[in-house]
Design a protein around this nucleic acid. Structure first.
Length: 460
RNA sequence: UCCCCAGUAGCUCAGUUGGCAGAGCGAGUGGCUGUUAACCACUAAGUCCGCGGUUCGAGUCCGUGCUGGGGAGCCA
């Protein structure tokens, strides 16, 4: 006899005798001579109703069960006599594993997201956050499955890096230097005496590593944490977040866009099909339009437009934007939202951006002023994916590095890839938390990562 | 980093012109009922975010700091 998880029991076709269920009490309702106890074991959104009769020897203790207490129940799964659930469990014995005191912060009522953030260690015990983190797990699995079905290899790119990759934002330094008494040379801190013999930092992207492996294994992807030390305070930024970064050899920008679109749709369909119970909760309590919005993503063809066309549409929109629009400037949040939410009302891919607003590794187009870059914008989230065809021509790459002031010596290994068997290749980065926000309707990124790290906040 | 808003019971909030600290929910106790965010009654529960100021008197007005939220920038 072993423990059976609730999600399995609730799918049962027949009654079952002499089973064991373990979980946490969500609520207790007493009758004159018996109690209903709803327990949840995290295996699914649904609770299992336990019927505990006064004939149980520890019934007095059972009547004191509080929300949050842990129990083990031995008994029979029977068809429920009441309405509201198909199955319930008739307890033949109920062991109180631990009793939660009445100071347990989670009450039998809805809490605000702001309050739950202050008890992030307990929030996965709520219906909503349980659902968020089950979906997070399912999405991770779906991503691996998507790539595996297409012959991609999973690459573990380093977390600690010596190269100031691509200048994508502020870096967190990694050091063992004693700041009270740092080694110095010519008045400056001497990093040659630091742990790695040079400055090191947490990675902001696995892309450069992924490129090296794409040029060996063909199609690869990374999926891991990345770090930005930017003082960003918005609903869409955290200092530690997860990124999915595929990289493909023998692949141009348009095949790159194809993969991005295929992937977003695949993951959307996966969640619609595999997480329908959890999704119902979000549609009911978080975003009434979530399900139709996801179906729209799954079914519609993503609109693909040139950066120039996007600028034209924005110019002619008649909207009074706070920031003005002109070729050579990056699109602002308000512009992206207008395009994807109001104008096209579906995901939009914008490509061929001006080279000056994009990093050095993106491939220069023949017009000499734009690069083969693409962004996938989705309603409510904005930029979900950013990608490009990489500059595979050594001389062009070196020229771009000079323009942007990067030292070739630091990228000798990266440049080697363009010396030895270089080929056209492309890839993109997808912000995993933003994907979860999209799939669950959650509006704050802090609510889709277990323990969010943001400026001035690293509790838990 | 900039702009705006907020901070009162465990939670969500009200608090009038500056004049006795309040409600709902939750919790505890008792009752009732195959109940289901159960229901009914009673009870307990407060550094009104911190510091300073104005005033006979400050939850309320002023200054300042902290924390949280929203928007912007940076970006995924």
């Amino acid at each position: 006899m072993y423990r059976i998880k609730i999600h399995k029991l609730l799918k049962s076709e027949t009654p079952r005798d002499n089973i064991i269920v373990k979980g946490w009490v969500r609520t207790r309702r007493d009758s004159s001579n018996f109690s209903f106890i709803e327990i949840n074991d995290g295996s699914c959104l649904e609770n299992l109703q336990i019927v505990a009769n006064e004939s149980l020897e520890n019934y007095e203790d059972i009547k004191k069960l509080t929300t949050g207490s842990a129990v083990a129940v031995f008994g029979n799964l029977i068809e429920s006599q009441g309405r509201g659930q198909q199955w319930e469990m008739n307890a033949k014995a109920l062991e109180v594993i631990s009793l939660a005191p009445d100071s347990y912060p989670l009450q039998k009522k809805r809490h605000t997201d702001e309050f739950l953030r202050t008890i992030a260690h307990l929030r996965p015990r709520t219906n909503k956050y349980g659902a968020v983190f089950r979906i997070r797990s399912e999405l991770s699995f779906a991503i691996h499955r998507f790539f595996r079905e297409r012959g991609f290899r999973y690459i573990h790119s380093p977390i600690i890096t010596g190269s100031d990759c691509e200048g994508a934002g502020e870096l967190f330094k990694v050091t063992t230097i004693d700041f009270e008494n740092p080694p110095k040379k010519d008045g400056k801190i001497d990093y040659s005496r630091d742990f790695f013999g040079t400055e090191a930092s947490l990675t902001v992207s696995g892309q450069l590593s992924a490129e090296m492996f794409a040029l060996a294994l063909g199609d690869v992807y990374t999926f891991g944490p990345t770090f930005r030390a930017e003082n960003s305070n918005t609903k869409r930024h955290v200092s530690e977040f997860w990124m999915v970064e595929p990289e493909m050899a023998f692949c141009d920008l348009f095949e790159d866009i194809d993969l991005a679109e295929e992937m977003v749709k695949y993951l959307t369909v996966y969640i619609l099909e595999e997480c329908s119970d959890d999704l119902k909760l979000f549609t009911r309590f978080v975003d009434k339009n979530l399900k139709p919005a996801l179906e729209n993503i799954a079914q519609s063809e993503f609109k693909r437009i040139l950066y120039e066309e996007a600028v034209e549409i924005l110019r002619k929109s008649g909207k009074n934007f706070k920031f003005d629009i002109s070729f050579g400037k990056d699109l602002q949040t308000e512009h992206e939202r207008y395009l994807t939410e109001d104008f096209f009302k579906k995901p939009v891919v914008i490509y061929n951006y001006p080279k000056d607003i994009k990093p050095f590794y993106m491939r220069l187009n023949d017009d000499n002023k734009s690069v083969a870059a693409m962004d996938v914008l989705v309603p409510r989230i904005g930029e979900l994916i950013g990608g490009s065809q990489r500059e595979e021509r050594l001389s062009m790459l070196e020229a771009r590095m000079n323009e942007t002031g990067l030292l070739k010596e630091n990228y000798w290994w990266y440049l080697d890839s363009r010396r030895f068997g270089t080929v056209p290749h492309s890839g993109f980065g997808l912000g995993f938390e933003r994907l979860i926000m999209l799939m669950t309707g959650t509006s704050n990124i802090r609510d889709v990562i277990p323990f969010p790290r943001t400026p001035n906040s690293i509790d838990f």
